[in-house]
């Protein structure tokens, strides 16, 4: 599936300041809830502030929540992250549940990821533990002693056993006694 038709910015996974390695730090620094005291589009926001805001604040003591009434303007949720990113969500005609959902999402994010496409779903700094393949990895050291051109090594190895040899082998196998002839798993 090609991505050339997409106008999204491609990016790899980034974590601001090695977040999970030591302790986890909530990346949302502060949230500003801007709303109008009178306008109908801010009704959900006003209800949210009256009912569910205190619960949200108690659950997340690491986020500073500011409430800013602005007349004759649409309600907005503006989030600021620790890495300096800001993200604003137009909360016009949102219900209080929608606003709570958005706040929870913003709290669990580490930066504004709208318009960014993750190229890979894994990020490693050590892609190889056993050592990447080199042409020398499975190369037999005996090949260092061989004088090229070597006619024996040019073609495939064809193992032609004569009938006498096969009979001898069968006899050897019988002679051994408890022989388990099984195929490799």
């Amino acid at each position: 599936m090609s991505n050339s038709h997409l106008f999204l910015k491609p990016a790899f996974i980034t974590t601001p300041g090695q977040n999970g390695v030591g302790r986890y730090v909530c990346q949302l620094q502060r949230v500003v809830l801007k709303f109008c005291k009178n306008n109908g589009s801010s009704r959900g926001m006003r209800e949210f502030i009256e009912t569910k805001l205190m619960d949200f604040v108690k659950e997340s003591p690491e986020v500073a929540v500011y409430v800013k009434p602005r007349r004759h303007r649409t309600p907005i949720i503006k989030a600021e992250y620790l890495n300096g990113d800001t993200q604003w969500v137009n909360a016009r005609n949102f219900t209080e549940d929608e606003i709570l959902k958005w706040l929870k999402l913003l709290k669990s994010q580490s930066s504004d990821r709208t318009g960014i496409r993750l190229r890979k779903l894994i990020h490693t700094d050590f892609p190889s533990v056993q050592g990447p393949w080199t042409p020398y990895t499975f190369r037999d050291p005996q090949l260092n002693k061989v004088e090229f051109p070597c006619p024996e090594l040019t073609g495939p190895f064809i193992n032609e056993t004569s009938a006498t040899e096969e009979l001898l082998e069968l006899y050897k196998r019988q002679k051994l006694g408890n022989v388990e002839e099984s195929r490799a798993e």
Binding site: D140, Q142, E152, F157, V179
Partner: peptide, 21 residues
């Protein structure tokens, strides 16, 4: 004879038959 170890290596995907002696 010296090259026998190189010559007899096979890198196939088929399972190699073996017997437990």
């Amino acid at each position: 004879e010296k090259l026998s170890s190189i010559l007899t290596k096979c890198y196939g995907t088929q399972a190699t038959p073996y017997e437990i002696i």
